[in-house]
């Protein structure tokens, strides 16, 4: 299974949307950098992320979430990881694909 990383805000670019469309059931998506804005509740893209979580696991990089002051807005079901967790996810998946 692939670990997908997304570093773009869904408000800026379609990377998260295309990633979700291309992710197989059971894949993991890790939101990093501005990609963490895709993990928030009460936004125009919350439903997209929430629906995706029926078939894929979504993670967000905690240092990027905290840096942007949105720790109180993370969607239920999104798991926060630190850089060690990022490394663990890269190790436990067979390849890593960056959606830039």
């Amino acid at each position: 299974m692939i670990l997908h990383t997304v570093n773009k805000s869904p408000f800026e670019k379609n990377s998260l949307e295309r990633c979700i469309e291309s992710a197989k059931d059971g894949a993991a998506i890790l939101l990093i950098e501005d990609g963490v804005y895709g993990a928030l509740n009460n936004t125009a893209y919350s439903d997209m992320a929430q629906n995706a979580m029926k078939t894929v696991k979504i993670y967000a990089l905690a240092p990027d979430v905290q840096a942007r002051g949105v720790g109180d807005r993370v969607l239920d079901g999104v798991e926060l990881v630190d850089y060690n967790g990022f490394v663990d996810l890269a190790e436990s998946h067979s390849k890593v694909q960056a959606w830039l």
Binding site: I2, E21, S22, K24, Q97, A98
Partner: peptide, 15 residues
């Protein structure tokens, strides 16, 4: 098919 193609790879270089 895109999902299958990606899953079938060893290395994915994104540009």
């Amino acid at each position: 098919q895109v999902a299958d193609l990606m899953e079938d790879q060893d290395v994915i270089l994104s540009f």
